[in-house]
C-alpha cells in the first residue's frame, strides 16, 4: 500500500521489534488488546514509535508524490467539469499529506526532517507513483484502481491503535470516496465512447492493473514486519487479504465497463468464493521500490525542484511575519512610553 516499503526491508535493525517484558510494556500491550487508543504523550515502546513514524511518513510522502502523475493532466483535462474535479482531487491529496505529516509530528519528529528524508531519497513512497500517466484514461484508471486500493487499505486503518493516525485516516476516508467515483466515471465515459476511446480505457487498465495489485505490498509470508504491526494494531488486515478483497470488488466493475483484466489466470473460484488471479511480477515490484521504476528519477527531480523553487516563499513568509511582529512590538513600546 502507500506504506508497502515498510514490509520489504528485511534485516533492517533500526526498528526494535522484539517485545520486551517490562511492566510498562505489559501495560501498553494490555491497553492495545483492550482496544484503547494510544495518544502522543502516552508511554510507548521505541519500536512502536519508530514503526509509526516510518509508516505515517511513507503514507504522507505517497500523498505528496501522488500529486505528480495527476498534475500532468490538469491543463489537458477534456472539459471544465473534469478539470475542476481533478484540481479538487489533487488539492485533497495535498491536504491528506498535511494531515499525515501532522500526525507524524506528534511522535517527536519535525516536519523538516520528514521532508528532508523524502527529498534526499532516504524515505520510501508507494511504488505506484513511479508509473507514467501517458493518456487521459490513466486519470480514470488511477482514480478507480489506485484510489480504490488506497481506500481498501485505509478503511481498516481508521481503527489503528494510534489516535492521531486513526483520526487522520477517518478524515481522509471521508474525502477519498469522491476520488474513486470520479475515476470510475471517467472510465465509464470512455468505455461507452468511440472505439478509440474504449481502446484507450483498456490500455490504461492493462498498464495500471498489476501495479495496483502491488500496492498491497509483498505476500504475507514475505512481510517480516506484519506480525508485530498486527499485534500493535498499527496494521489491521494482512496484505494478501486486502489484495484479494480488492480483486473481488474490481473484477465485476471491469465487467460492467466491458473491459478485460490483463490476467489470463483470472477466474471465479466457486469453491473459495473468490477470484483466483495470476502471480505478481515481484521482480518488477522490487526494482520500482529500489528506485528503478519508469519514473522514480523524474518524481524525485520534480519534488526537489518544486521544493527549491518554493524556498523564497517560505523565507519571505517568515521575514514578513517577523517584520509585523517587530512593528507591533514597537507600537506597544511607544504607547507604553506615552
Amino acid at each position: 500500500m502507500y506504506t508497502q516499503g515498510l514490509d520489504v526491508q528485511k534485516g533492517d535493525v533500526s526498528i526494535p521489534l522484539e517485545q520486551g517484558d517490562s511492566e510498562l510494556e505489559r501495560r501498553f500491550q494490555a491497553k492495545i488488546d483492550a482496544d484503547e487508543k494510544i495518544e502522543p504523550k502516552d508511554w510507548m515502546p521505541e519500536g512502536y514509535r519508530k514503526t509509526l513514524v516510518r509508516q505515517i511518513s511513507q503514507h504522507a510522502h505517497s500523498e505528496v508524490v501522488g500529486m505528480l502523475p495527476e498534475g500532468n493532466w490538469i491543463t489537458r483535462a477534456p472539459s471544465l467539469r473534469r478539470k475542476a474535479a481533478l484540481l479538487a482531487k489533487i488539492q485533497d491529496e495535498a491536504g491528506h499529506g498535511l494531515y499525515l505529516y501532522s500526525a507524524c509530528e506528534t511522535l517527536n519528529v519535525s516536519r523538516q526532517e520528514l521532508v528532508d528524508q523524502l527529498l534526499e531519497g532516504k524515505a520510501k513512497y508507494s511504488s505506484i507513483f513511479n508509473y507514467p500517466s501517458t493518456t487521459w484514461a490513466d486519470i480514470g484508471a488511477i482514480g478507480w484502481l489506485v484510489d480504490g486500493a488506497a481506500i481498501m487499505n485505509q478503511v481498516p486503518l481508521q481503527r489503528c491503535s494510534y489516535g492521531p493516525y486513526s483520526r487522520a485516516m477517518i478524515r481522509i476516508c471521508k474525502e477519498e470516496s469522491f476520488h474513486q467515483r470520479q475515476g470510475y466515471e471517467i472510465m465509464l465515459t470512455l468505455a461507452r465512447g468511440t472505439a478509440a476511446q474504449k481502446r484507450m480505457a483498456q490500455d490504461a487498465l492493462n498498464r495500471w492493473w498489476w501495479p495496483s495489485l502491488m500496492m498491497f505490498g509483498p505476500n504475507d509470508k514475505d512481510s517480516p514486519h506484519s506480525a508485530q504491526s498486527m499485534r500493535w494494531k498499527i496494521k489491521r488486515v494482512s496484505n494478501d487479504e486486502l489484495r484479494q478483497k480488492f480483486v473481488d470488488v474490481t473484477v465485476p466493475q471491469a465487467d460492467f465497463l466491458g473491459l478485460t483484466m490483463p490476467d489470463p489466470a483470472l477466474r471465479w473460484n466457486a469453491g473459495s468464493g473468490h477470484y483466483d488471479f495470476g502471480e505478481i511480477d515481484w521482480e518488477e515490484f522490487k526494482q520500482v521500490l529500489q528506485g528503478n521504476g519508469p519514473c522514480n528519477r523524474e518524481r524525485m527531480r520534480d519534488r526537489n525542484r518544486a521544493h527549491e523553487r518554493g524556498r523564497w516563499v517560505r523565507e519571505a513568509a517568515l521575514a514578513h511575519a517577523e517584520k509585523r511582529r517587530a512593528r507591533a512590538a514597537a507600537q506597544t513600546t511607544a504607547v507604553a512610553a506615552e
Partner: peptide, 17 residues
C-alpha cells in the same frame, strides 16, 4: 488538527484551505 504557518493570519487561511 494542526498545521505550520508563518503567522496567525496565514494559519487561519491555510486552516480554511
Amino acid at each position: 488538527g494542526s498545521l505550520h504557518a508563518a503567522d496567525a493570519q496565514m494559519a487561519l487561511e491555510n486552516a480554511r484551505d
